[in-house]
Design a protein around this nucleic acid. Structure first.
Lengths: 192, 192
DNA sequence: CTTTCTTTGGAGCAAGCGCCCCAAAACGAT
DNA sequence: ATCGTTTTGGGGCGCTTGCTCCAAAGAAAG
């Protein structure tokens, strides 16, 4: 195990990835050019390609980072939620998540829609993410004492999650998002 | 009123538009190049630009055509449906609509997601379409005798419509679409 | 200091993009 | 047959794309 020599990096990888997440989130993958990244990340294309290999490689790294962000803000709270209140709060957090800043929806779901099944790797990652959210909803229902038709109700809630995302992505302003949020809350309350 | 002279078109506009709809539907707007259109529509780019002005112009014309298609297949049945059965049938027809052929979701909703609020014209058209679907759901509920919380329930159903679309677009195969379909049916049945 | 290794900036490449130009073609009108 | 008008095909233009090449720079190891 020898220490390697060479010129050190002039940037912090995580900071750069945060900015990449921000750009991919708002503009999508295809519409974000390597020149856009160059100026937004503050590093040259040389450094970008040296560090991440390709635009796709950078996107995957950004996706990892995004998943951790969404894990802390949305998934973990949902997976540890007790009662229907926890699920209700998840939807509130979700609505805030997809409308904050210049954001438009969830980066992963946007990516899934943009990809349209073209890239296998994106396909697998988004599929895994979908399953995780759906299962978390089902488990939260079970923990809340909802045992009849828990699977179907989880699918129902999951559909609303996707609906909220696509409406946020479509850019209808937050009013349509709040309508769907209220509808989801109404549904949850009807199960009390 | 004089009759115009000149060389006649060698193609039928509606046939060409049908093929354009098919391409834009499957591949999206951005990923469909004018060369793709040239070979798929069977006409040269010259004819394409002469007839439709631009790629965007062709897309708008294709959008008009698509709206008529979806009107006949989905909207009109929904707008004239009686009872909850009609709404249930709408969802079945929707699920078939977004998974048929090599299709992936609804062309308009895909376009909305792809656009992400960038183009104002697409924004307006998709907003109008969303409202129409949502209002049709509400009216159908009222016609079915569901008068309490009709608005909220329409939003709920509309969220499921969007969810079904985005899952179909994501390309999870038809199994996930059918899960969401079953969930929507379950919801509707719970209102009987 | 010299060597060794990596990173950095800048220029640039091949390919693809939407779109345009223009001569030839194909019709109706005269 | 000749004109006026529109469509058609082919070539090509200017631009952007993701990506690469390479000399210079910067730090650790000897």
């Amino acid at each position: 195990m020898t220490t390697t020599a060479g010129r050190p990096r002039s940037f912090d990888t995580d900071e750069v990835l945060d900015r990449a997440v921000d750009l991919f989130w708002r503009r999508g993958y295809r519409d974000t050019t390597t020149r856009d990244l160059e100026s937004a990340l503050g590093i040259s294309q040389s450094s970008l390609y040296n560090a991440f290999g390709s635009k796709q490689g950078l996107m995957e790294a950004a996706l990892d980072r995004y998943e951790k962000l969404t894990e802390d803000a949305l998934l973990t709270p949902l997976e540890t939620a007790e009662g229907l209140d926890g699920i209700s709060e998840f939807f509130e957090a979700l609505a805030a998540w997809v409308t904050g800043d210049g954001r438009r929806g969830c980066m992963i779901i946007n990516l899934m829609a943009e990809n349209g099944g073209a890239d296998d790797l994106v396909d697998k990652r988004t599929r895994r993410y979908r399953r995780r959210v759906r299962d978390a909803l089902r488990d939260a229902l079970l923990r809340a004492g909802i045992e009849s038709h828990a699977e179907v109700r989880a699918d129902l809630l999951f559909g609303e999650v996707l609906g909220i995302n696509v409406v946020a992505r479509g850019g209808a302003g937050s009013s349509e998002v709040e309508r769907l949020l209220a509808a989801a809350q109404h549904l949850i309350n009807s199960w009390r």
